[in-house]
Design a protein around this nucleic acid. Structure first.
Lengths: 348, 348
DNA sequence: ACAGGGTATCGAATCGATTCGACGCAAAGC
DNA sequence: GCTTTGCGTCGAATCGATTCGATACCCTGT
């Protein structure tokens, strides 16, 4: 019931050794005689000392063991995205190997007093997202001289990024659809910018989200004139909404829909069912991501499989490398096309 | 390109003021003349000083602005649970109000060097989970004298917990089913302990997970002899697996299944469809949680709605209160029964 | 012109540990 | 017996900021 928690100095005094020795007993950086170790440990026990204060230790070491993960959206929303979850999974795994933990942060200067990259004791940062909003975080982080890795975003300069061959991959899916003989194709894309409400976009639309733009280009490489509906987010519901619009007019119905995510594709499939269209007989649908979509059975999406977990892991490894002073290079992962049962030649 | 980052002392010197004044310019704790503020800010700008070092500031203040969230399972897995996500959402929101961020931690002493409650600079901790494993984290946290809140778990002592009236709520659902006239009922529960592979459990089974036990008791209050299949986790797939087993033998088929989560219930519904049973005509199904289950349309589960986000928010508020020195009390939330279209009287 | 009051700034102590060169002492080598 | 070696321990500086009582200063009231 001491009014003040015991410090290592107290422990040292109690044990009759110098603070440096006591410190070393806990850190193990230097050999200590068994007798001394015992005395210090006993003293600690007696005083209720549970180990060095993490803050003080971090200050001295100049390292907190915390990696900030910055999202550009509401956290609850980010975690609804299976791709981000899997990515976090890989990230957690690789930084844990370094003894680091993940601090959840949101890009955004609005709420004053909210935790941010400026005020959080992070050793490094991982920026997750696509839009340009993250620039802000990037500036902060660069000014502070903190190692940073960007996942799925444009970093510029010498900032390592973990990316995907989005355009090539999407083109591959589009080519698959074309080779099946489809001519009338519609595209369902991810949001074109943060806050996008959903709706058709024309070919000269400003797209600030890199992923959306790259995948769209891949599709346009094959179908330059395909109409594109940009959803409000990567959710089944949004795909459903998009699909309803796309299938609304029987006269202009496409025979194939290329969606930029599996969840969107799942929604499109559902919309097709609603409209009385059979998949893949009446309409083919492709996705992107290669995740397991709950409740889509017996459909198996024809999709592009991306190495989600690996992306996170790579980001973590890059961060760890930079923390060790090594220079980390950008890395681009390659997707793999996977044929499912949601694509087939068009009828007639 | 200085070899060493500028400190506030450097800025003060450059601006020709004392360190204390410079500090105050950034913290705003004390009024500063406009002229001085300008000089300090300019000096900072010139030196590339971006603000106080968070670690040093934290040490001095004795507060890091970080709340640790401890899960008892693999993080990737925890985030697959919509209930936990929603809870995190509420938690994030309420601690952000205090300017704090969330540090993801996993209970578990195995990996040495992995980030843990012992070594992480957290002001407070929120333990999420149900099993007894968290005891370990609890001890650590108590020894360190850190405020802690437990969500859905037994804390003992004076540790505030955020709970749910699981037993009452489940009993309510069971009563609903009984009032419809069902006699032969099967239960699908959450895991009985961490690492549980899934399978039937008998009535004297040891259940270390509080939530599972409480909800099971609620069901048993009404159906003392109902067979119970404990799933390996709260997933549609697990519910599907459980349902397949339950519906396997036509002779012993129940007319109703009470599942301990909506995802499990969704899986059970699917299993029923697979077995050629119509829901709710041939078999009634109830869930628990009240979340939106993607892909379950047109079914609307008869379920127990729990205030998920509120739970997280309450935990955050409790933590904030304790950090302010106030004593936080345990709080138990009440669920609400919601009738959907997955329950009906048994046939014949 | 001087006491009184309010502001803005300063000094110095402090938060709690880590680090590294110096040092003491005992065993070993010649 | 005296120097060398080496292991263990100690001192003191340091990490970078915050805090608060003290101080200097300017303005006002009489």
């Amino acid at each position: 019931m001491s009014i003040r928690r015991a410090t290592i100095a107290d422990v040292a005094r109690e044990a009759g050794v110098s603070p440096s020795t006591a410190s070393v007993v806990f850190s193990g950086k230097t050999p200590v005689s068994d007798a001394t170790r015992r005395r210090v440990l006993d003293a600690a026990e007696a005083l209720g000392y549970t180990g060095p204060d993490p803050l003080a230790a971090s200050l001295r070491r100049g390292r907190s063991g915390i990696v900030g993960v910055v999202f550009e959206e509401h956290l609850g929303r980010a975690f609804q995205d299976p791709v981000k979850i899997l990515m976090m999974d890989g990230l957690t795994e690789s930084v844990a190997g370094m003894g680091a933990g993940l601090l959840l942060l949101r890009d955004q200067g609005d709420e004053p007093g909210a935790p941010s990259l400026t005020t959080a004791p992070v050793d490094a940062a991982v920026l997750v997202g696509c839009s340009g909003i993250l620039r802000e975080s990037l500036d902060v982080v660069r000014a502070r001289g903190i190692p940073v890795v960007v996942i799925e975003g444009d970093a510029g300069d010498g900032i390592p990024r973990v990316g995907l061959d989005n355009r090539d991959a999407q083109r591959q899916a589009a080519n698959h659809v074309r080779s099946l003989g489809h001519e009338r194709v519609a595209l369902v894309t991810l949001p074109v910018r943060s806050g996008w409400p959903g709706g058709w976009i024309d070919s000269d639309a400003r797209i600030t989200v890199d992923v959306t733009r790259d995948r769209l280009q891949g599709a346009r490489d094959v179908y330059p004139d395909a109409p594109a509906y940009a959803a409000a987010g990567s959710f089944i519901d949004e795909g459903l909404a998009a699909g309803r619009v796309i299938f609304a007019d029987p006269a202009s119905r496409p025979t194939a829909v290329l969606a930029q995510s599996d969840l969107l594709a799942a929604g499109v499939v559902r919309a097709a069912e609603e409209a009385g269209l059979r998949v893949p007989e009446d309409v083919s649908v492709t996705g992107f991501d290669g995740i397991v979509v709950d409740g889509l059975a017996p459909y198996e999406l024809t999709t592009i499989v991306q190495p989600t977990v690996d992306k996170g892991r790579a980001a973590g490894q890059a961060v760890v490398a930079m923390l060790r002073g090594e220079a980390a290079a950008s890395i681009s992962f390659t997707c793999e096309f996977r044929a499912g049962n949601t694509t087939a030649p068009p009828r007639g």
